[in-house]
Design a protein around this nucleic acid. Sequence first.
DNA 1: GCAAGTGAGTGGTATACTCCAATTGCACCA
DNA 2: TGGTGCAATTGGAGTATACCACTCACTTGC
Lengths: 248, 248
Amino acid sequence: MAETAGNGRTGTKGAQLRSYLLGLIEGELKPHEKLPTERDLAETFGVTRLTVRRALDQLGYEGRVYRTQGAGTFVSEPRIAKSVELTSFTQDMRARGLVPGSLDTVVEEIPAGAEIGARLALSPRDLVAHISRVRTADGEPMCIENTYVPAKLAPGLAARGITGSLYQMLTETYHLKIEKAEQSIHATVLDPPLAKLLGVPEFSPAFKVLRVAYDAKNQRIEYAESVYRADRYSYDFVIFRTSRDNTN
Amino acid sequence: MAETAGNGRTGTKGAQLRSYLLGLIEGELKPHEKLPTERDLAETFGVTRLTVRRALDQLGYEGRVYRTQGAGTFVSEPRIAKSVELTSFTQDMRARGLVPGSLDTVVEEIPAGAEIGARLALSPRDLVAHISRVRTADGEPMCIENTYVPAKLAPGLAARGITGSLYQMLTETYHLKIEKAEQSIHATVLDPPLAKLLGVPEFSPAFKVLRVAYDAKNQRIEYAESVYRADRYSYDFVIFRTSRDNTN
DNA sequence: GCAAGTGAGTGGTATACTCCAATTGCACCA
DNA sequence: TGGTGCAATTGGAGTATACCACTCACTTGC
């Protein structure tokens, strides 16, 4: 049952290869160093070049490597947190080497109401579990999070309460695996009560993030509204030109 | 074989297929309607299923379709601007149905200096073309943009001046095609002079966006610092869980 | 010495085929 | 009538192979 440890030989060959390549990137190789060629990787791992390509393409999307036809595949400069990946606050902080925590956690079961209902595609009268908490990193407030999960997907969640990672609980207790999310990021300023919760001056800049998360079956699992301190947070990512758009 | 009529027969088969599928998505099909099966598409276009899959996967990444094993591929709800794509301000506004413009355009050639030099991997003494302008949408200020391009990549740019799209000029005059960019988004508030330029109250919230753009050969083409009005701008995108990370 | 040319090696695109895993609808049975 | 189980269908993962386009280091010729 336990999810077969971290970077080992989990799942598909592609995933194994990915783990190996991530090891190379984060361990042995330095930025701008060349990875083995696709053909070499294919041979040493006993897989097709296509399988290797899929893994490398994925890493390219995430900005961890860059590829140049005729030359090779190279490690990117580490610089930026990859916000193109879907992570929970817990994961996110751990990736940054910080210890995640929560303050003032409140869990309650309430009717969805018009707005939350619309976000989660529920009737306004349907019940949702509402988790409200101040998230901390190394003990310092980082963001205010209001999360809503349809009660029928996670029965008893409100009674059970939340200790650590909501995502972990959703996965392990309710077998709800979030695979995709739509996220909308706004800039705002903190009104006095929020500023106080986050321990920053009034009217400090902040991010407001709205997120609707789905599982593999495109079922809505979670709606979250978060407010992040701008002084400790930024969104960094790599974007690509898709194909031949001529329109400049 | 008979070039199945009209649908942009540009470039690779994958690109042609993509054009056709985009036509379907934006034209005939409504959200949540089913696309043809991979096998059907492969047959009717005379390509391999793998080629079809690549095109569909790409559209999946962009959030335009969603796929469910055993069921099919479906059109996503249109909702959100896909900021996962790399676009110029000009393209971006046109995509939103607005007319892009510029105010107070200043183009000058100056030494890069320490910060800009570092961003563009130049010596601080190397010259860069600096373009400063207020970008407008339907005549109203949307953002303040400061762009820097290495002078040696675009000789004479400062003298020539900018009329419309910088990206268009870079492509057509200097054959510099931007393929990738690293972007960092911060939340901030507008100090009085900036607020005045954008025509909003002082200390209004805003996005500050830093961007380093590269061409296909990973050569740095552009560094841009932009400040966007938060009341008229948000970042909306779709993110995916990459693979089976266990760490929740 | 230095520029032009060339060829091996690299990633990019595509074919043709195979098996697996999840979904869904329909036939069948209780 | 109301499940229930099976089979067809669909997307997911992979193998084996071929050829193209671009890069880059090395050779060659001046």
